[in-house]
Simulated scan of single mutants.
Amino acid sequence: MPEPPHNWPKNIHYTTTCSFHSSVPQSIRQKITEGSAAKTATINPPNGPSPADKSVVAIRRISESTHPACGQLGLFAARKIKEKTVIVDYIGEIHCDERPESDYDLSLFRSSDLSVGIDANKQGNEGRFVNDYRGIPGQEKPNAVFVDERLASGELRMRIVSSRIITKGEEILVSYGKAWWQARTTSTSN
């Protein structure tokens, strides 16, 4: 079992590989684990850090009172990260059921009538701490993006990739997307 990084919450299972919920049909499992790398690979940064390289990122408590996630944890660059570098994979439980209560659920893909997601609410890796850039003073846009990519093995992964140079100590920020914010607004107003 891999050792969790510094500041990892005790109530969250740390893992470096995704697991499958029982809601995922065998055909979807195969599509995720055995797909063709040549058909969908989108980014293969030479000399980029390994997604499991803990020296690239650090988990820190956010103390700035103007930050929307003040008091919570965030993901920060532990060293300078070049543009278009894979920072870390988003790891969690792959599922096909609805999870409106989770703030850590990310869409992996849609297949016919199924939505396939990765939920890092109860298990995951450092990627679960990446915050949205909205509402953070001085942040007009994200410095990283979510990219789905097939590894050389054929396995489909959701990766967090830098969209510009990120300096050491800078918070790694993405866009959760309008749909995520609309769903959150809808669920909190009910």
Rank of each mutant, 00 (worst) to 15 (best):
I12A: 03
I12K: 04
I12W: 02
H13I: 14
H13D: 13
Y14L: 00
Y14K: 01
Y14D: 00
T16Y: 13
T16H: 13
C18W: 02
S19H: 07
S19M: 04
H21R: 03
H21P: 05
P25T: 05
P25C: 08
Q26C: 04
Q26S: 07
R29M: 13
K31L: 09
I32F: 02
T33S: 10
T33V: 05
E34T: 08
E34C: 11
G35P: 15
G35Q: 10
G35V: 06
S36N: 12
A37I: 03
A37F: 10
A37K: 05
A38C: 10
A41I: 07
T42F: 15
I43G: 02
N44Q: 08
P46M: 15
P46N: 13
N47W: 13
P49W: 06
P49Y: 06
P49D: 04
S50T: 07
A52T: 10
A52E: 15
D53H: 00
D53A: 00
K54C: 04
S55A: 13
V56I: 09
V56Y: 07
V56C: 09
V57R: 09
I62S: 09
S63L: 15
S63W: 14
S63F: 13
E64L: 15
E64F: 10
S65L: 08
H67W: 04
P68N: 05
P68Q: 04
P68C: 05
C70H: 09
G71Q: 07
G71N: 12
G71L: 06
L73V: 05
L73F: 14
G74P: 01
G74S: 02
L75P: 02
L75I: 01
L75K: 03
L75D: 03
F76C: 09
F76W: 03
F76K: 05
F76M: 06
A77F: 02
A77W: 00
A78Q: 07
A78W: 03
A78T: 07
I81W: 08
K84F: 09
V86H: 14
V86F: 14
I87G: 12
I87Q: 11
I87A: 15
V88H: 11
D89W: 14
D89P: 11
Y90W: 03
Y90G: 01
I91C: 01
I91T: 03
E93G: 12
I94Q: 07
H95Q: 11
C96N: 01
D97W: 12
R99L: 11
R99N: 13
R99V: 06
R99T: 09
P100R: 00
P100D: 00
P100K: 00
E101R: 10
E101T: 12
D103Q: 08
D103W: 03
Y104I: 07
D105A: 06
L106M: 15
S107P: 15
S107V: 14
L108S: 03
L108I: 05
F109R: 01
S111D: 14
S112T: 08
S112E: 15
L114K: 12
S115A: 12
V116S: 08
G117T: 15
G117V: 03
I118D: 05
A120E: 04
A120S: 07
N121K: 14
N121Y: 11
K122D: 14
K122Q: 09
N125R: 03
N125W: 04
G127C: 02
R128C: 07
V130M: 01
V130H: 10
N131D: 03
N131R: 06
R134N: 11
G135Q: 00
G135F: 01
G135E: 00
G135K: 01
I136M: 01
P137N: 08
P137Q: 06
G138F: 07
Q139P: 04
Q139I: 05
